[in-house]
Design a protein around this nucleic acid. Structure first.
Lengths: 344, 344
DNA sequence: ATCATCTGCTAAATCCTTTTAGCAATTATG
DNA sequence: CATAATTGCTAAAAGGATTTAGCAGATGAT
């Protein structure tokens, strides 16, 4: 009940040594000359009393808090956040750190507030995460602070972690080709503006660039490129329905994300077309719903969890190359593409 | 560059007053007798220097950190987490607090670790969140700590925030009845064990209890109750396909969650049945996918965001009734149920 | 024997606030 | 007019760690 917190002084007293000695021993200083016996006594005393250092006091002295700030634009609307946060949490935990979660809604004013709140608490580093990979405005920070951009890029802060979209684009084409699909392929969700990288997603433009590069190399080309602004299920439905209504002789779909693919499934279902027999479908993201679709959707997974882990690793590493760190997107093979040995 | 952090002493010096005065003025103490002029000078000095208090120092002195710990079993697997976290973040932000996010995977050892990490950082309160509402084991905490259970219950900690599942169950039946559906109704996802509340979900058993209570009152009963253990899309598919194969003359489906409903859609689609004309569907959760289904799924929304907000409110309120605080689940009307003025 | 070096340890300062106790001058009270 | 109360403010302690500077005794070098 009324027992006060155990302090270092208590430990020192029980061990019969000075606070200095206790501190040095417990923090594991390297070149101290304290005896083995002193070490043993201090550790024993700490264990006996259940000593836990007061981190506020330590922070006051050392300016280190073993806390990292995760500042994201939106946790809310997107299920993508989960993986990034989970990976971050996991890696932080392993490194004995803890995560302060802050959300800005992408509004500069709230970004400034969030940064100040984090600075006030003397976090050891910042992870700025965007839910759609893009160039993010980051208000200026005292130079000493370490920053990693997660699923985002920034002029000021060159260390960033991104999915390897270009390579995924290439791999998707290779996968289709190796399944015997070289013609009659429709691209669902092409968007000129996105492709040029002006808006929304830095990386999705690379996804497309990878697709086109690999197709060029193999002498392939799209039979149709259906374009839309947003990439929701409803848009996928409309685009594919349009294709079918116009009787374009499409033989396979490459959807730019899983929600578009979901919409495509709906349109194909209504038209009585079977996947993959009548129409194989390949997509990107590995959204949760990809596994729930019937048949399961073959898709290239955004490696969010690994990205979160990598961000923490970079943040805490003694030194780091100031580059983009690309994480591979692996194919998740399901039944929407036939002739391929499938896994879950 | 090399400029050090501005401290309270700097502010006091510039204002020509003592640190004590500066502290009292900036923390807005009520009954101090400092002159209006002193107030003005201190505020001016603080503004001029861009003073921000060192929260570590303050925490050391006051034991308050304006930080709350959000300890959850799983952020990962479930999209439900988003709403809870977002609501928490929002309300915390409004109250000038910040959120430490910790994940335990439901493992007691990690729970203990997470609590210690949070205690070490002197958080002002704990929110324990479970992704499926249930009784959660919480390792013992120093009695002084405030605790709110979010989407969870605990013997030790009586303040909890839960969705009002019972009432939602009743409302679902009322909604079906008012749409003219009184017979031929099938329940998808019934599960004896869940209903008795032994496992997984404290609240889903109430959902069922509400359904049954309202049906009894109206003299209604189910034509079929299809039971399964897990509530994934695949199970919904199997159950509904089974019903159709057995030619049970079902006229409407009440699914216990949206993923089951998703599976039901798939089975109905394959059988060539139209929703809602041939088969209306009503469900629970308002999962993200409910809006993306065709037709849109009418469902009772889990009010996760409000729940998160309420949890913070309760945590920071001066005093609180040690009860369950139930948050209403509102109907989201879409096209899967006809004869009802539909929204969105 | 003398001086330097090493060994094993500690006293005290420091980080930055908040808070307690109290001082000196002024005003009110009997 | 003496005493009490009020006003407006400050010095110093406290909170719990880390770190700097340095002490006393033992050992080694010359």
């Amino acid at each position: 009940m009324g027992r006060k917190r155990v302090t270092l002084a208590d430990v020192a007293r029980l061990a019969g040594l000075s606070q200095t000695a206790a501190s040095m021993i417990l923090t594991g200083r390297p070149d101290t000359r304290l005896s083995a016996e002193a070490h043993a006594r201090v550790h024993a005393a700490a264990a006996e009393l259940g000593y836990r250092p007061n981190l506020a006091a330590r922070a006051l002295r050392t300016d280190k808090t073993r806390t990292i700030a995760f500042i994201s634009d939106v946790v809310a609307t997107t299920r993508f956040a989960n993986g990034l946060i989970r990976g971050t949490l996991e890696a932080a935990d392993k490194a004995g750190h803890v995560v302060l979660l802050l959300e800005t809604g992408g509004e500069p004013a709230r970004e400034v507030q969030a940064i100040e709140a984090a600075l006030d608490r003397q976090v050891d580093g910042f992870i700025f995460a965007a839910m759609r990979a893009r160039e993010v405005f980051v208000p200026s920070l005292p130079a000493a602070n370490r920053v990693v951009m997660l699923n985002a890029t920034s002029r000021k802060h060159p260390v960033s972690v991104l999915p390897d979209e270009f390579e995924a684009g290439r791999a998707a084409i290779r996968l289709l080709d190796s399944a015997g699909i070289r013609e009659g392929l429709a691209l669902i969700g092409h968007n000129q503006v996105v492709e040029e990288g002006y808006f929304r997603s830095e990386t999705v433009s690379r996804r497309l660039a990878g697709i086109r590069a690999e197709m060029d190399q193999r002498g392939m080309s799209f039979l149709a490129e259906e374009s839309c602004w947003n990439w929701e299920a409803a848009h996928g439905y409309e685009l594919v329905k349009g294709l079918l209504d116009r009787r374009v002789p499409v033989e396979a779909l490459l959807c730019l994300n899983d929600r578009l693919a979901f919409g495509a499934y709906q349109a194909l279902g209504e038209a009585g077309l079977r996947i993959p027999r009548d129409m194989p479908v390949v997509s990107f993201d590995n959204d949760e719903l990809a596994a729930d679709l019937r048949p399961g959707l073959t898709t290239f997974a955004l490696p969010h969890e690994q990205m979160g882990q990598e961000a923490v690793r970079l943040l805490l590493a003694p030194e780091v190359e100031p580059f983009e760190h690309l994480i591979a997107m692996t194919a998740v093979l399901r039944q929407s593409l036939a002739n391929i040995g499938g896994a879950d």
